[in-house]
């Protein structure tokens, strides 16, 4: 009897050791997204911010590069967060919103429409950057299943070691430095601060569209997103962030405008508002018109904050002690980083 117990105990201990070792190895091998492809950190960082948000931005790089929650707070007292990551597709956006609604209910959801042009899964690498950081639950399961590319499998999301095991040969210092440590957030409430100025030199000719309309799949996900907002009493705002490239076709614009009209939503194509906002693609872009730098993002946030306040009667939350404290810390970190990067340029 004693021998059997010892045997079972030994086997259990060996299993615990193996699982412990595999857990540690998985942590080591998973990309940390600290120095390169930092966008990969954005999804997970959302859970570190415990303050409530009146405005939640949803979308791809055009939200995490172009809107500054720090400006929105300091100018209008609007607490906000950006749930965006690189090439975040429409189904990702839907499930990330559903995931956010588990813990908070914003008053306004700002939805960037660029990703509507993709009706099919695009890239495994971007899928991983968007989804690996998401907390487990119905939303994450749905997001994974909705958009796996060929060759991806669900198990590798459950056990990321199955996906990232081959990184053993490319481990770098950041992998060890952030093995068990989260480190400082790379974003400012989901905003990735960039100070480089790379002016837009020319407007590239857009390729001819095979199908002038946005894919039906995308529109169906947008429909679901609108329904989810309605169900939760949230005002949904559709935006097209200002950019020169990728080209935003008038046909797509018409599709979104029609959708907005049919659902009684505000849709604003900010490309057409460049002058009103004050965006200058010679000074306000960090990559020749694809994304805004911090100067452009601050201009855009100032303009958009004013619009939001007027249209949705958002309260000025400055004076709330907890929020004041949180945003003071955030602003300090933001200004320090802005200065550091500006000097670095």
């Amino acid at each position: 009897m004693k021998r059997t117990v010892l045997k079972i105990g030994g086997v259990l201990l060996a299993c615990i050791l193996l699982f412990g070792a595999l857990f540690a190895i998985t942590r080591l091998l998973m990309p940390k997204y600290r120095e390169t492809s930092v966008e990969g950190s954005l999804t997970a960082e959302y859970y570190r911010d415990t303050t409530p948000h009146d405005v939640l931005f949803i979308g791809d790089c055009e939200v995490f590069s172009n809107f500054s929650p720090v400006t929105l707070w300091n100018e209008y007292g609007i607490p906000s967060y950006i749930r965006g990551s690189a090439q975040q597709l429409v189904w990702h956006s839907y499930y990330l919103l559903e995931d956010a609604l588990q813990t908070e209910t914003p008053k306004v959801v700002v939805y960037n429409v660029l990703a509507l042009k993709y009706g099919e899964p695009q890239s495994e690498a971007y899928n991983r950057m968007t989804l690996d950081g998401m907390r487990w639950g119905k939303a994450k399961t749905g997001a994974i299943k909705a958009g796996m590319t060929e060759g991806e499998d669900f198990m590798s999301y459950v056990f990321p070691l199955l996906r990232f095991h081959a990184r053993w040969s490319e481990l770098g210092s950041e992998d060890f430095a952030y093995w068990f440590k989260a480190g400082e957030p790379v974003s400012f409430n989901g905003y990735l601060l960039r100070t480089e100025v790379r002016p837009a030199t020319e407007t590239p000719l857009p390729p001819v569209l095979k199908d002038p309309h946005l894919p039906e799949t995308s529109m169906a996900w947008l429909e679901k997103t609108a329904a989810l907002c309605k169900e939760n009493g949230i005002d949904l705002v559709l935006i097209k962030s200002p950019s020169i490239e990728p080209y935003w076709y008038p046909e797509w614009d018409a599709d979104v405008a029609a959708f907005a009209e049919a659902h009684g939503l505000w849709y604003v194509n900010m490309i057409e508002q460049n002058d009103a906002i004050g965006i200058d693609m010679q000074t306000d872009t960090c990559d020749m018109g694809q994304h805004l730098n911090v100067y452009g993002a601050e201009k855009l946030s100032r303009w958009f904050g004013s619009e939001l306040k007027t249209r949705y009667a958002l309260a000025d939350r400055r004076g709330d002690e907890a929020l004041d404290a949180a945003y003071r810390t955030l602003t300090e970190r933001y200004e320090t980083e802005k200065l550091r990067l500006t000097e670095g340029n």
Partner: peptide, 19 residues
């Protein structure tokens, strides 16, 4: 069991499988 787990562990890390 330890040998078995060692084999499984090394396959999981050094094996060529997955995406």
């Amino acid at each position: 069991v330890c040998v078995l787990l060692l084999l499984i562990g090394t396959i999981l890390v050094f094996g060529r499988y997955g995406f």
